[in-house]
């Protein structure tokens, strides 16, 4: 066991409709370690099992077989209440379709994980405001999701994902619903967080260019890891050349 691993997956198998005639095996034994502070990309065709894997990593779903240790906790051994706590403190989700709570302001959305963590009213407000500042959305704190552009919503979602300083930020196609330029800005924000706060990020994307900027790229096809290769780590070609 690698002590540096935040995520440690061993022979993860996921089947649906178990026992019925249309039983499906989606993941066929995934083993993967993610280092603390790593910015990992998972790529693969649509339907290859990326979201299924992310749901398992994010403790939204349990694997049918295999073991998963998140930040030292064996996920097979935790009960319902503890799972909620792990999602709250250890995981920060960023979704393709933002998934902000409607009719709640940007500030309230960012405060939500803090509220579930039991942080006091005053403290969570301060923390949420400082997170909004980090993603340069301070001036939109009192706006509701329907008053924000896609890129702005995703910044709020990222601020929300970071609220409890999670062990891992899981982003499932976070640029998928954004135009190239806005997607670029969101990507830059991830790089910045990874570099400046040391956040561990697992980014799911089918954009190979964006994946190439990460520390490592895992390719998934038909529920199997078919390739793991190093990326540029967020540095442009020019920077890489200068560095070497």
């Amino acid at each position: 066991m690698n002590p540096d691993s935040v995520i440690q997956l061993r022979n993860i198998v996921k089947r649906y409709n178990i026992g019925s005639e249309n039983e499906l095996e989606i993941l066929h034994g995934i083993s993967l370690d993610v280092r603390r502070g790593e910015f990992l990309a998972v790529v693969g065709a649509s339907g290859s099992g990326k979201s299924t894997l992310m749901n398992i990593i994010g403790a939204l779903d349990k694997p049918t077989e295999g073991s998963y240790i998140l930040d030292g906790t064996d996920m097979d051994e935790v009960g319902d209440t503890q799972v909620s706590e792990i999602r709250n403190r250890e995981i920060g989700f960023v979704f393709q379709n933002f998934n902000l709570i409607p009719r709640s302001t940007a500030l309230k959305n960012v405060e939500l994980p803090l509220m579930y963590a039991g942080v006091s009213r005053q403290e969570r407000r301060e923390r949420a405001l400082s997170l909004l500042k980090t993603v340069e959305m301070s001036d939109r704190a009192d706006h509701q999701p329907n008053e924000l552009s896609g890129g702005q919503k995703q910044r709020i979602a990222i601020a929300r994902a970071m609220a409890n300083d999670p062990a891992v930020i899981l982003a499932d196609e976070p640029t998928g619903a954004l135009d190239t330029k806005t997607g670029r800005l969101v990507m830059d924000l991830f790089h910045e967080l990874n570099r400046e706060t040391g956040a561990t990020i697992v980014l799911i994307t089918h954009n190979r260019e964006l994946a190439a900027e990460c520390d490592r790229i895992v390719t998934l096809s038909d529920g199997r890891i078919t390739d793991i290769s190093p990326g540029t780590g967020g540095y442009t070609d020019q920077e890489q050349e200068n560095a070497s």
């Binding site: 994010g58 939204l60 909620s84 709250n88 994980p113 963590a117």
Partner: peptide, 16 residues
Amino acid sequence: TREIGIRKALGARNGT
């Protein structure tokens, strides 16, 4: 339903 899913992903307990 979706909002409930989001809240659970953010760590809301069933009781909450």
